[in-house]
Design a protein around this nucleic acid. Sequence first.
DNA 1: GGTGACATGACAATGATTCTCAAATGAAAT
DNA 2: ATTTCATTTGAGAATCATTGTCATGTCACC
Lengths: 132, 132
Amino acid sequence: MTTTSRRPTRQRAAVAAALAQSAEFQSAQELHARLREGGDSVGLATVYRNLQSMAADGEIDVVRTEEGEAVYRACSTGHHHHLVCRVCGKAVEIEGPAVETWAAKVSAAHGFSDVEHTVEIVGTCTDCSRVK
Amino acid sequence: MTTTSRRPTRQRAAVAAALAQSAEFQSAQELHARLREGGDSVGLATVYRNLQSMAADGEIDVVRTEEGEAVYRACSTGHHHHLVCRVCGKAVEIEGPAVETWAAKVSAAHGFSDVEHTVEIVGTCTDCSRVK
DNA sequence: GGTGACATGACAATGATTCTCAAATGAAAT
DNA sequence: ATTTCATTTGAGAATCATTGTCATGTCACC
């Protein structure tokens, strides 16, 4: 079902590597720029295509910025949510059994099937609130 | 604090009215088109500006589409979340005390302050899963 | 080594959102 | 009413991420 056979290419590997290099969320544009600088030249469209297919296969995480920009991140493992600092962008991975069950219960109650959910918590982390 | 004094104008009223006309989420573009058709001509930029200020004041709800488009909705009351059908777009307003407390607890545990959270659940509603 | 399908790259095209700035309009004073 | 002045509006240009196009490159297999 999730078997989208793909061909291994230098570009795909480069994108995956660049993504894995940081634990933070990165936009396609940022990744593209980083690749350029690093010498691994990869076309912008290719970066987008690869990120999309990886995301479709659940290999990476996608989230929409407040401004609507898509940001990607190498997903360490399984299903989880994020606690993001609105100032420095630091992201903490969190899990919430409570939320999972709640979401399942609520959607079932309304007759919804094949459900997915997104939970994003944004706030100001200790470091950033200190500085002001 | 939330006292952003604004001037009442025909346009602002028109946008608010158009928004209130439907219980569904609508994009700025859709609202603009609807206003045009209805004879209440309002500039596109103005529609955006008003939606933004209303959203900033918490008078209306904003959510990002899967494609990154911003959609707005007259917010009935207080804080709540949405259960959205991925096929027909039908949205059900839901509340979740469980989620609220969980979010507060988790963010506090990580030292985050001034926290906000977003929870979106998407699935397929009864009607749409029936048709296939 | 040849071949056909899939991947890539450069660039054009799209589409939502924002910016610009002159003209219109509200509010309060006169 | 009229003046005054900050705010709001409108039309269109400008941005900017993302997607489409299509000729060319490359992989897996024969």
